[in-house]
Design a protein around this nucleic acid. Structure first.
Lengths: 144, 144
DNA sequence: TCTTATAACAGAATAATTCTTATTTAACAA
DNA sequence: TTGTTAAATAAGAATTATTCTGTTATAAGA
């Protein structure tokens, strides 16, 4: 995504366009593999050493509130972030910290139909996400 | 679960049976709703004020390693714990910190069959867990 | 350009968790 | 039952990730 697109995203949400916000968004996209706040901070500081750590956290918080990025649930104790917001699931590697997105419209439909039939008592579903845990059988290098 | 059962669980895993470990296991079971380490510590200290906080963390770590308890992923930044190990999914309330277990053997079979047909490239699945997000439509009091 | 609300900075503060070292104890053997 | 030893616990310091605070800077609209 280009700078221009980031600016447009911010404007759409009526957020002020600041260099810090652009840098954080670039970092999340540049890093892939659902980076932690720490990794994002590190990446940001390479090109913008003057951005304060607290600012990165604040910007991330703003982005999450505005649904520009999402927090990813992990078994470890640090949060990780991702940008795109389409419905998708996650593949978790049980032996490393690799996390990949998994999109599957057929699966979404299957689940939707299943839960339409099988009403849950006392619960109104708004979203379903799969955590698919296992092992990657390739070694595609992931930049961490 | 009775004390006796906790002791048996520990022995099965070749773990030393200590009052601290029994107290922590009792706490997780007593608290329900997937307590945080902090809640567990609080509960433990009511009856055993001399147990160190660090010990609770250490015991939890040991339990997780030995699969006696599991960590539950949350969107917030604290881990939560639960005891039982059968395959199950989670209902997350989007408006509170309530988390409930959801067991559904039909669903497990459906998913298993789906992924048997639809081979994932470069990934061997070992486990699938659903995060079902939504709203509870009842108000059953949850002890936090 | 001016104004103002919002954002960023710097660093202190906090919260959750981990680590360190000394002491204690559970489990097993004699 | 007692002794031995590896493992577990206690206590508190240390660390890590994150949030907060007060001040300064700046983006965006008038």
């Amino acid at each position: 995504m280009k700078n221009k697109d980031i600016i447009e995203k911010l404007l759409n949400k009526r957020l002020k366009v600041t260099p810090q916000r652009i840098a954080v968004m670039e970092a999340i996209e540049g890093l892939k593999n659902h980076p932690t706040a720490e990794k994002i901070t590190g990446f940001v500081k390479i090109h913008h050493p003057n951005i304060a750590t607290g600012t990165v956290y604040k910007v991330l918080e703003t982005f999450v509130e505005n649904k520009l990025v999402a927090k990813v649930k992990t078994e470890k104790d640090v949060m990780r972030y991702e940008t795109h917001s389409e419905v998708h699931h996650h593949l978790y590697c049980s032996e490393s910290d690799r996390i990949e997105d998994y999109e599957d419209e057929d699966l979404n439909i299957l689940l939707k139909e299943y839960f339409n039939k099988k009403k849950l008592r006392n619960f109104r579903i708004s979203d379903i996400r799969l955590q698919i845990i296992g092992k990657f059988t390739n070694n595609n290098s992931i930049k961490n």
